[in-house]
Design a protein around this nucleic acid. Sequence first.
RNA 1: GGGCGGAUAGCUCAGCUGGUAGAGCACCUGGAUCACAACCAGGGGGUCACAGGUUCGAGCCCUGUUCCGCCCACCA
Length: 878
Amino acid sequence: MRPGSPETLQHPYDPTRIESRWSQEWEARGVFTPRPGGKPFVISIPPPNVTGSLTMGHLLGESLRDLILRWQRMEGREVLYLPGMDHAGIATQNVVERQLEERGTRREDLGREEFVRQVWAWKEQYGGLILKQLRRVGTSADWSRERFTLDEDYSRAVLTVFLDLYGKGLIYRGRYVVNWCPRCQTALSDEEVDKVEREGSLWYIRYPIKGTEKFVTVATTRPETMLGDTAVAVHPKDRRYAHLVGKVAVLPLMRREIPILADEMVDPKFGTGAVKVTPAHDAADFQTGKRHGLPEIIVIDERGVMNENAGDFRGLDRFEARQKVVESLTDAGYIEKIEKHMLAVGQCSRCDTIIEPMLSWQWFVKMAPLAAPAIEAAKRGQVKFYPARWRKVYLYWLENIRDWCISRQLWWGHRIPVWYRGDEMVVSIERPAGAGWRQDEDVLDTWFSSWLWPFATLGWPERTPDLERYYPNSLMVTGSDIIFFWVARMIMAGQQFMGQVPFPHVFFTSILRDSQGRKMSKSLGNSPDPLEIMERFGADAVRFTLIYLTPTGQDLAFDEKRIETGKFFANKIWNAAKLVQMRLGDEDLGPIKESALRLTLADRWILSRFANAVKDISRFLKTYRFNEAANALYHLAWDDYCDWYLEMAKPRWTEEADPEDRRVARWVAWKVLDGILRLLHPFMPFVTEEIWQALPHDGEMLALASWPKAKRAWVDAAAEREVAFLQELVVAVRNLRVENNIAPGRRVPIVVRGTHEQLALIEQLQSQIMPLARIETLTLARDGARPPVAASAVVRGAEVFLPLEGLVDLDKERERLVREADKLLSDLENTRKKLRNQDFLAKARPEVVERERVRLANLEETLEKLKRAQDSMRTAQR
RNA sequence: GGGCGGAUAGCUCAGCUGGUAGAGCACCUGGAUCACAACCAGGGGGUCACAGGUUCGAGCCCUGUUCCGCCCACCA
């Protein structure tokens, strides 16, 4: 047992002062490095972008992860939280390019090698800000193991995976229509495209049929692509157009002759049932083109500008070209009509530029074989999702998975390990021997590196001790917005390369929204600055509040004001500790044996409340119901401990009190506070550590102390029931005082009539109850006469009288009694009705019926006593 | 077009396997009582979106409807 340090816990509580200190202390003392002994418990950080800075969303994620980590550490597990960052190809390249732009230069001017060098320089200088910010939150990460997806070792893992999948035939190169961002100048995966609903137009264009005066009308939302049309398609079973199949249409403006063909892809119910086919600029048309051997004519270049195949429209931006094409078509009489039309356009998730489907050479991963085991894993329960409904989302995606375009036309990233010389192609990490080899220009999608995160961070492909010990991880905590990008792919990679899923459980955090329900994002500018929030309220307050507010799996409308909940709570704990510290005196609590203490009813009550709370909180944490855990803790600490126990203990701490009992009250107050601090530590690590150190404590650090056990010997249902009665009694007296306008400072005499048992209970805690209700004298009378003029209340059958002749307003009191009785009346009626119902009596569970009977008896008794009180008021008036 | 979530006190949200509604904030009343005014004591306030159904009993289960939000989708 170590003594506390009484000079601390000054008034007022100042979070910023203590928080900076403990972050350093914990790190300095190696609290966050895994301590061998227990079973490992491992979480990997969802690596933030190297360009990133802390958002409220991160703060929520970190609060939840650190809550679990600290709890598990206290449970004796060997805890590892592995931190690191993602190189974030597009995002990072964009940042540095913008910088270059300011200096009036472009990456092309620098050349690839120099540009990459400058990105690294940027990373060294500015990158990783977010990891520094995480320290402010109190995140218990093992910084010695920090990883970056472009670290040398990590890069080797990425390239090894490429080689492996290529060797298995799961990576291929091909020329397909892919999502192209004309601003970022790179291909994107389907997941990197956001579909946005917009109102557009549907243009109906007449394509003349060769050798006739007739025409076929097609409908399109993208008239500019007609310049690249190489066919018109109709459904094979569409009778309206059967006669046209095999004929030739003449493409307006271009005068190109294109076939009219039949294809199942066409939906006869949409538009006119005839569709223009542009194989080079539409993924579906591309497939149609392949089926029919159509030429692929590219009319839009990689910057979104019409090229030399676009005839007169060459050099125009694609949207400008759309207008001009429509104008030309209108002038020439080809437009039949224009309709308003809702459509979903693809946007680059990075820069919101409208995606251009483009035909190009790219590298792909064949996903179906990887998805199969990942589907199995979820179905067999080898990986579970919390909340469970995400399982369905996960399965649907995997069951309908499409191949993954992994090549990016960027410079920042893992360069594709493929080499060309003439017609030769070699896949190899090292440059092949011999002269003239040229490496593929593209880099890999960033997610192609981060999907390896749970094992590549541990040294894979080497079989390192870390990998042996810490794979698989124990849990993944992340946002549902990256379930496909990252979670599903990690599960696939884990099975493919490690032979087992990377984590048995995935917990999805809430998405934070602003008061208007919009997702908090940097681009909207509706996210408060987390660092500023932490400065103002303290990291503890923010952590606790976020956890307390976060319903499992529900979005959360965040309001800054609510952080006060956590701030006030921290303050409450601080002050309670201050009181306990003051009242402990120089008592040495170390040698005290619980068995030697004569516990009072109040002591047994709080110990029981505590033991039950430990059980509840532990269960809530195990089942990922974090908000409920926080809620239970809040009420244990504030209501039970501060408002009731400490108040009841105060009289026992005075000079006049019995020294032996004073010791008991000291010990229990300290013991329960110590327990509350332990329970609270994972939620509010800083303030709890500070307080714990200031009080007598067992061990070096609260962060390394043990999680409380729910002692069965402390559970005492009788004590809980009994104290509940006394609490109701106190509340009843307080009520009587307020209702009768008795000055708050004034002490009043109280008479209680009740059963022997009730009076005995009151007697036990008499001296502790009296100050709570400002009672001057407490008269306990089994059958004593009711005071002639008194305000009264009924508590569980016991009658409480406030006999203050002259002070009680008789009329008001009578009115109050009537009101009180009225309130009971409807309850009483309902209960009676229920008990008259034969079906209820026959079919409800016996204990439910019994409960109703007791309720009825109580109501009747209470009502009866209220009536008698009314009667006596009437008598008194005469 | 398919799927998922939500609708409970003025606001933000709890409410576990069905047993007649809770918290915080806000509001009202009173209080400088030596842990805490970042506090204490007390109070008002809800046909649990709507309509049916199952059940002795529904905020909770089932069906449908209306709004709000999200995800997926090659009807151009």
